[in-house]
Amino acid sequence: KVKIAGPGLGSGVRARVLQSFTVDSSKAGLAPLEVRVLGPRGLVEPVNVVDNGDGTHTVTYTPSQEGPYMVSVKYADEEIPRSPFKVKVL
């Protein structure tokens, strides 16, 4: 029921550039959304989540370095389908 889309989860994500993606939970009811961005060697990146007021949230983060990242998206305390997402930061 929760959908996710945006360039911040795709290929070609650049280090030190603001990345974003949208989480659409409009068909999933009200529940807490939790997003974690883990970088190389367990680095935890700050994440900004904005409630758009229409059942969607815009998530932004800036990867601080190149390497493999994991983006975990939980809704109602459960990983959404395909989460955690593997993101290769260049």
Rank of each mutant, 00 (worst) to 15 (best):
residue 1 K to G: 05
residue 2 V to T: 00
residue 2 V to C: 05
residue 2 V to G: 02
residue 2 V to E: 01
residue 3 K to T: 13
residue 3 K to N: 13
residue 3 K to D: 09
residue 4 I to V: 11
residue 4 I to D: 03
residue 4 I to K: 01
residue 4 I to L: 06
residue 5 A to G: 15
residue 6 G to Q: 04
residue 6 G to M: 05
residue 6 G to H: 05
residue 7 P to C: 08
residue 7 P to G: 07
residue 7 P to V: 06
residue 7 P to H: 07
residue 7 P to T: 12
residue 8 G to M: 03
residue 8 G to I: 04
residue 9 L to Y: 03
residue 9 L to K: 02
residue 9 L to S: 03
residue 10 G to T: 09
residue 10 G to L: 09
residue 10 G to A: 08
residue 10 G to I: 07
residue 11 S to Y: 09
residue 12 G to F: 12
residue 12 G to D: 12
residue 12 G to C: 12
residue 12 G to I: 13
residue 12 G to Y: 14
residue 12 G to T: 13
residue 13 V to K: 01
residue 14 R to P: 05
residue 14 R to L: 10
residue 14 R to I: 15
residue 14 R to N: 08
residue 14 R to M: 14
residue 15 A to P: 10
residue 15 A to N: 04
residue 15 A to S: 09
residue 16 R to A: 06
residue 16 R to I: 00
residue 16 R to D: 11
residue 17 V to R: 08
residue 17 V to N: 06
residue 18 L to T: 13
residue 18 L to V: 12
residue 18 L to F: 05
residue 19 Q to G: 01
residue 19 Q to F: 03
residue 19 Q to C: 04
residue 19 Q to Y: 02
residue 19 Q to T: 13
residue 19 Q to R: 01
residue 19 Q to E: 02
residue 20 S to N: 13
residue 20 S to Y: 14
residue 20 S to R: 14
residue 20 S to W: 13
residue 20 S to T: 14
residue 20 S to D: 07
residue 21 F to S: 01
residue 21 F to C: 00
residue 21 F to A: 00
residue 21 F to R: 00
residue 22 T to A: 05
residue 23 V to T: 00
residue 23 V to Y: 00
residue 23 V to W: 00
residue 24 D to F: 05
residue 24 D to V: 03
residue 24 D to R: 02
residue 24 D to Q: 04
residue 25 S to H: 14
residue 25 S to T: 14
residue 25 S to Q: 05
residue 25 S to D: 04
residue 26 S to R: 11
residue 26 S to M: 05
residue 26 S to D: 03
residue 26 S to E: 06
residue 27 K to C: 11
residue 27 K to T: 10
residue 27 K to S: 14
residue 27 K to G: 13
residue 27 K to Y: 07
residue 27 K to E: 11
residue 28 A to Y: 02
residue 28 A to T: 05
residue 28 A to I: 04
residue 29 G to M: 08
residue 29 G to Q: 13
residue 29 G to S: 10
residue 30 L to M: 15
residue 30 L to R: 14
residue 30 L to Y: 11
residue 30 L to D: 15
residue 31 A to N: 06
residue 31 A to R: 06
residue 32 P to L: 03
residue 32 P to K: 14
residue 32 P to F: 06
residue 32 P to A: 13
residue 33 L to K: 04
residue 33 L to V: 11
residue 34 E to F: 10
residue 34 E to G: 09
residue 34 E to S: 13
residue 34 E to M: 11
residue 35 V to F: 03
residue 35 V to Q: 01
residue 35 V to I: 12
residue 35 V to R: 00
residue 36 R to C: 13
residue 36 R to T: 14
residue 36 R to D: 09
residue 37 V to W: 02
residue 37 V to E: 01
residue 37 V to P: 01
residue 37 V to Q: 01
residue 37 V to N: 00
residue 38 L to H: 14
residue 38 L to Q: 15
residue 38 L to Y: 14
residue 39 G to D: 13
residue 39 G to F: 02
residue 39 G to Q: 03
residue 40 P to T: 05
residue 40 P to F: 03
residue 40 P to V: 05
residue 40 P to L: 03
residue 40 P to W: 01
residue 41 R to S: 12
residue 41 R to G: 13
residue 41 R to Q: 13
residue 41 R to P: 05
residue 41 R to M: 14
residue 42 G to Q: 14
residue 42 G to F: 07
residue 42 G to H: 10
residue 42 G to D: 13
residue 42 G to R: 08
residue 43 L to P: 06
residue 43 L to F: 10
residue 43 L to M: 14
residue 43 L to R: 12
residue 44 V to N: 15
residue 44 V to W: 08
residue 44 V to R: 12
residue 44 V to P: 11
residue 45 E to T: 10
residue 46 P to H: 06
residue 46 P to M: 09
residue 46 P to A: 12
residue 46 P to L: 07
residue 47 V to Q: 04
residue 47 V to I: 10
residue 48 N to H: 08
residue 49 V to L: 11
residue 49 V to F: 06
residue 49 V to Y: 07
residue 49 V to T: 12
residue 49 V to R: 06
residue 49 V to Q: 14
residue 50 V to R: 11
residue 50 V to A: 10
residue 50 V to E: 11
residue 51 D to R: 10
residue 51 D to F: 11
residue 51 D to E: 12
residue 51 D to W: 11
residue 52 N to T: 05
residue 52 N to K: 13
residue 52 N to P: 01
residue 53 G to C: 13
residue 53 G to V: 09
residue 53 G to D: 11
residue 53 G to H: 13
residue 53 G to W: 09
residue 53 G to T: 10
residue 53 G to Q: 12
residue 54 D to R: 09
residue 54 D to G: 09
residue 54 D to A: 08
residue 55 G to L: 11
residue 55 G to C: 09
residue 55 G to E: 06
residue 55 G to V: 02
residue 55 G to F: 11
residue 55 G to P: 01
residue 56 T to V: 12
residue 56 T to W: 06
residue 56 T to A: 06
residue 56 T to M: 13
residue 56 T to G: 04
residue 56 T to L: 12
residue 57 H to W: 10
residue 57 H to I: 05
residue 57 H to C: 07
residue 57 H to F: 11
residue 58 T to N: 07
residue 59 V to M: 05
residue 59 V to K: 02
residue 59 V to H: 04
residue 59 V to C: 13
residue 59 V to W: 02
residue 59 V to E: 01
residue 59 V to Q: 02
residue 60 T to K: 09
residue 60 T to S: 11
residue 60 T to Q: 14
residue 61 Y to F: 05
residue 61 Y to C: 02
residue 61 Y to Q: 00
residue 61 Y to S: 02
residue 62 T to M: 11
residue 63 P to M: 01
residue 63 P to I: 02
residue 63 P to D: 01
residue 63 P to A: 04
residue 63 P to G: 01
residue 63 P to W: 00
residue 63 P to L: 00
residue 64 S to V: 09
residue 65 Q to Y: 09
residue 65 Q to V: 14
residue 65 Q to K: 13
residue 65 Q to G: 06
residue 65 Q to D: 07
residue 65 Q to S: 10
residue 66 E to R: 06
residue 66 E to P: 15
residue 66 E to K: 06
residue 66 E to L: 09
residue 66 E to D: 14
residue 67 G to D: 00
residue 67 G to H: 01
residue 67 G to P: 00
residue 67 G to R: 00
residue 68 P to D: 14
residue 68 P to N: 14
residue 68 P to S: 15
residue 68 P to M: 14
residue 68 P to L: 15
residue 68 P to F: 15
residue 68 P to C: 15
residue 68 P to E: 15
residue 69 Y to E: 01
residue 69 Y to Q: 03
residue 70 M to I: 11
residue 70 M to W: 14
residue 70 M to S: 13
residue 71 V to A: 03
residue 71 V to K: 00
residue 72 S to N: 09
residue 72 S to E: 07
residue 72 S to D: 05
residue 73 V to S: 00
residue 73 V to E: 01
residue 73 V to F: 00
residue 74 K to N: 05
residue 74 K to C: 07
residue 75 Y to W: 12
residue 75 Y to F: 10
residue 75 Y to N: 01
residue 76 A to K: 15
residue 76 A to N: 13
residue 76 A to F: 06
residue 76 A to M: 10
residue 76 A to P: 02
residue 77 D to Q: 09
residue 77 D to N: 12
residue 77 D to I: 00
residue 78 E to M: 11
residue 78 E to W: 04
residue 78 E to S: 08
residue 78 E to P: 00
residue 79 E to S: 07
residue 79 E to Y: 07
residue 79 E to C: 06
residue 79 E to I: 05
residue 80 I to Q: 02
residue 80 I to D: 02
residue 80 I to T: 04
residue 80 I to E: 02
residue 80 I to P: 02
residue 81 P to N: 08
residue 81 P to Q: 07
residue 81 P to M: 05
residue 82 R to A: 13
residue 82 R to Q: 15
residue 82 R to L: 11
residue 82 R to N: 15
residue 82 R to F: 11
residue 82 R to Y: 15
residue 83 S to H: 01
residue 83 S to G: 06
residue 83 S to T: 03
residue 83 S to N: 03
residue 83 S to Y: 00
residue 84 P to F: 01
residue 84 P to L: 02
residue 84 P to N: 02
residue 84 P to C: 02
residue 85 F to Q: 05
residue 85 F to A: 05
residue 85 F to V: 13
residue 85 F to T: 05
residue 85 F to Y: 10
residue 85 F to S: 03
residue 85 F to E: 02
residue 86 K to T: 14
residue 86 K to M: 14
residue 86 K to A: 14
residue 86 K to C: 14
residue 86 K to H: 15
residue 87 V to Q: 04
residue 87 V to D: 02
residue 87 V to K: 02
residue 88 K to A: 15
residue 88 K to S: 15
residue 88 K to T: 15
residue 89 V to Y: 03
residue 89 V to N: 05
residue 89 V to K: 00
residue 89 V to L: 02
residue 89 V to G: 04
residue 90 L to D: 15
residue 90 L to I: 12
residue 90 L to G: 15
residue 90 L to V: 12
residue 90 L to M: 13
residue 90 L to R: 15
